[in-house]
Nucleic acid binder design. Structure first.
Lengths: 319, 319
DNA sequence: CCCTATAATGCTCATACTGAGCATGGAGGA
DNA sequence: TCCTCCATGCTCAGTATGAGCATTATAGGG
């Protein structure tokens, strides 16, 4: 390879780098999206990538299935980081972190070592607009953002800050966009409204609610949530999180849990069966609390056919 | 970190890994999407990632700008590979390849070392459905795929193969989907219709046209094309590839070059100005070959506003 | 100067999709 | 029996989208 084609000319002894995998494993239970955590809910599971593994994805799969005793239905690479602030302190080795999103079915306890499933809204309470999320934005976050806007140097940057805050958090008449999870977290980070952003360790008195995580794991989780919220709109991935048989309302509740917002029931049903995503099992669910509902199963065939088209969410302002 | 949280238990001396960046740098000129290549058009530019760099992205930016003397308008991470077949032969080190997509403005010659800009259809002639692409699929590829379908073991897998071929290549009445670039390449690879798939080196007599590349660079390029084709539909990224002032037809031609298909002119214009993506400069272009056209410039402001909504392509069966 | 090719631009139309809401059916509990 | 909670069926208006017709504006050739 010609020298000019190389990203850097220093070709002699490059200091070794280490590769690390970070997994965001998602399940849905009890109307809540859950994420697998370690360190008493303060970190995402991670570990070194070793040459014994065939590939990144197989390493992740193998490990997660061993941990959760569940098949990982869907795995997707999220992002690779190598920022210098991620270098292990004192070590001369550079760490490259490769993050993955994985979907699995049940949130069964995995046992031991402070491993647990947590609602992802524990870390991002403002993202749950099914109920109190909107209030948190309005009461707790918006005031802080206004201060941040006013603290800008000049009128121009004040204007830019205001516009950015309005768009990402849906203020001043702008609509809430559930996909902007990462942008919102990054704004809060820049405005030093999240604990990770304060240089002197975790402050007890953060004005904005939401548990922090170690390292930049909360940012990675935000990336995963954003990706998943976007994906469910055009790919039938929700079904990876559903039991084999389910009612349409259960399906809707799962989507709502992920999207963090309520959907229009009739339109949701229309969309689902327009796309032939499910088929009736012939059975009925009687414990619905109302009229019994038909049970459905996912038509696995569509994963091939519908390689592209996919699901869209029928959103609604309110319900 | 608890042991159970690690991806693998072997914690002793992990063999070092090396990180490599691979760049897909895209520009548009002469109604063709161009990609920066090295090794006499046989490979994508790549190089080691070293600890001197602040981050992956800054390393890439720095290097590309130095090479092309152009500002990299848009940079996006594509994918990270670490498959064992990517290990350098004979070396005990594992190589992790991180690929990036970058957009830049002009395809000026970079000088020296077999660096050149190539139309990406040189590697994927069947992807250019503005003219001969559809014919290549029908005349050269479809017959091979039929053989591949018939070569399947049993009726079930034959059926699966047929369906897969029909969907990805738009056969038997299915519509052509320009986003399935990677799926198409992978199908051709599996069917051993591309040179990279034949184990005994590059064959001269491949039934399907299209230049191969070294290593898995053609696959990476396919990933980049697919990503970009999807992106231009909902994000105003085309403008990164346009000169400061342009006519609407020039803009349309650029989009068509990327998408590999022709667009309905009136609908394209409707979409562009519905979204307020551009503003008139007041000047006119007279060398259009017909009636003079207004010159426009991109409204940079929308990149903030339109953080999400974005452009959609008005497609058309034919023009 | 007229004619033709090539574009730019303006408008219309049918269809599909989408957000919303009304109405009715069926089961269990007070 | 009435009430509540859901399941399910259907309607309606606004908007987006794929297509195509018509008109306007230059350049170049006869």
């Amino acid at each position: 390879m010609p020298d000019s084609a190389r990203i850097s000319r220093k070709s002699a002894k490059e200091p070794a780098t280490a590769a690390e995998l970070i997994a965001v494993i998602v399940a849905v239970s009890g109307d809540m999206p859950r994420v697998l955590t370690i360190e008493d809910a303060a970190a995402l599971p991670s570990g070194p990538f070793e040459s014994a593994h065939r590939s990144l994805q197989s390493a992740l799969r193998q490990w997660v299935e061993q941990q959760t005793h569940h098949r990982l239905g869907y795995v997707e690479q999220l992002y690779t980081f190598a920022d210098s602030d991620r270098t292990m302190e004192g070590a001369e080795r550079r760490v490259i972190s490769i993050s993955y999103l994985g979907l699995t079915r049940e949130a069964r306890t995995t046992g031991g070592n402070a491993v647990s499933w947590q609602s992802w809204y524990r870390y991002f309470p403002w993202e749950d607009h099914r109920d109190r999320g909107a209030a948190i934005v309005a009461d707790r976050i918006a005031p802080c953002l206004r201060s941040w806007v006013d603290a800008a140097e000049d009128a121009v940057s004040r204007r830019e800050r205001r516009q950015r805050a309005d768009i990402t958090f849906g203020l001043n008449g702008r609509p809430w966009n559930e996909e902007l999870v990462l942008q919102r977290y990054e704004l809060l980070y820049e405005a030093e409204l999240v604990a990770e952003a304060s240089p002197f360790g975790i402050e007890a008195s953060m004005p904005v609610p939401g548990e922090p995580m170690l390292h930049d794991h909360r940012r990675i989780l935000a990336t995963a949530i954003a990706r998943l919220r976007a994906k469910i709109k055009y790919r039938p991935v929700v079904f990876e999180l559903m039991p084999p048989r389910f009612t349409l309302l259960q399906l809707q509740r799962a989507v709502e849990a992920l999207a963090g917002r309520l959907l229009h029931k009739q339109n949701f049903r229309r969309l689902i069966d327009q796309q032939d995503l499910v088929e009736e099992t012939g059975e009925m669910a009687t414990e619905t609390g109302g009229r019994p509902a038909k049970l459905f199963r996912f038509r696995r065939e569509v994963q091939v056919e519908r390689a592209i088209a996919g699901t869209k969410l029928p959103l609604s302002r309110a319900v």
